[in-house]
Amino acid sequence: MSYVRDLYSANQLPIFQNRMYGSEVEARNCPLGDVRLVEDLNTGLVYNAAFRPELVVYDQHYQNEQAVSAKFRAHLEEVAAIVERGLGRHALIEVACGKGYFLEMLASRGCEVTGFDPAYEGSNPAIEKRYFAPGTGVTGRGLILRHALEHVVAPLEFLAQLREANQGEGTIYIEVPCFEWICEQGAWFDVFYEHVNYFRLLDFTRMFGTVHESGHLFGGQYIYVVADLSSLRTPAYVEGQRVRLPATFGAGERHMHAETNQAVIWGGASKGVIFALRRMRGGAPIRTVIDINPAKQGKYLPATGLRIESPNDVLPRLSEGTTIYVMNSNYLDEIREQAGPTFQYIGIDHE
């Protein structure tokens, strides 16, 4: 019998924080769902007990491409080096490869890689528009699973299906957000409805009997593991490894004051959606949203209905000293270099 320990709750968050909307009205009327993070006291894994998978259907309006940033491209180069070191360069499979950017990066480095994603909309013949599952008829020496496992109900069963699809063997690279970083930073703006699971590095050392390599990436915000799929096992809860969530997590007024200079946010992705929503509900709404991704510009954030604009459209309108909340401090230097010294920059994930 499964029993759990409650960790954190957040009500009425957008089902999709990375779905862009064509109008303010549509965005404000987006579907919402609740979050109830719990720690399973049998396995030690953390998940949203209020998650309803039937609400989550990805389509062409979902937009989460981060590779427009040079900082993020550098991160992907680091990941590619780990993949080559841990999985080799031949007979690779990328599960849930999305728009194919990382797969094509690997291919440009001389890797032999096949991608699987039923939502893929491009024309790369190396990507199959279906799930990698038992019966696919394709196997690889190495499997790549980047930022997918946090979206999957029953992650252990999902990994077991990948193992079966790959004939019970192979090496897997897994990359997910780091829940320890979220806890340590008090990053309530990093808890989303889309993410049903929240992982710590030690979770993977308990899930796999053989781990070849593991560590942190992207300023500690992500974790990764390279492990033998054949060694997958059900983790056991360890009392000394229980989740340590700060008692004040999500309860404070961090960055919730109303500025006299009409603050804006830079980053119209997941963190920006949750941050802007909390500000609006707290009576200190954000003025506008900046994002360098052309696919997001002119669209509207879910729940708040804020319009996303390009830096070139917004920056000339801002007065000197305007507060710009940077949604991810990994991009702070990049943003400051682009926008100049005129404004006040605050990274929300650092005090």
Rank of each mutant, 00 (worst) to 15 (best):
I82F: 02
M207I: 11
I182F: 09
Q241W: 12
E184D: 11
L306D: 13
I223E: 09
R206Y: 06
N328H: 11
A247G: 12
D6W: 06
I15D: 06
I335A: 02
P14W: 03
A339E: 00
S329P: 07
G347R: 01
R36W: 13
P341R: 03
C178G: 13
T205C: 04
E239Q: 08
A148L: 08
M327L: 15
L13W: 10
A50Q: 07
L55S: 10
L301V: 11
Y58K: 07
T43L: 02
T342N: 04
L37Y: 05
E39Y: 07
R254W: 09
F16P: 03
I346P: 13
L106I: 05
L13I: 15
S2D: 10
S319G: 15
F116H: 04
H61Q: 09
H216L: 14
R279D: 05
V56S: 03
R242G: 15
V138K: 13
E26P: 05
Y173K: 02
Y3W: 06
A27C: 11
H255L: 14
G122T: 09
G215N: 12
K296L: 15
T342S: 08
S310H: 08
Q63D: 15
L87Q: 00
V264S: 02
F192E: 05
G186Q: 13
Y8D: 14
G305E: 14
E112W: 05
S270G: 15
D333T: 13
N330P: 03
N330F: 09
I274D: 03
E164N: 01
G100E: 10
M256Q: 14
I348G: 06
I286T: 01
L217G: 14
N330D: 02
E164C: 00
G298N: 11
A126I: 04
Q60F: 11
A263W: 00
V196Q: 12
D190L: 10
C111E: 03
D333E: 14
Q12V: 08
D59H: 02
N18Y: 01
Q262L: 13
A126H: 10
G140M: 13
E194V: 12
V57T: 14
S230M: 03
E175G: 04
I274T: 08
A80D: 15
L76M: 15
E351P: 13
L232H: 00
T288Y: 07
Q17A: 12
G110Q: 06
A126W: 05
L318Y: 02
A119M: 11
T210K: 01
M1K: 09
T234Q: 08
E104L: 00
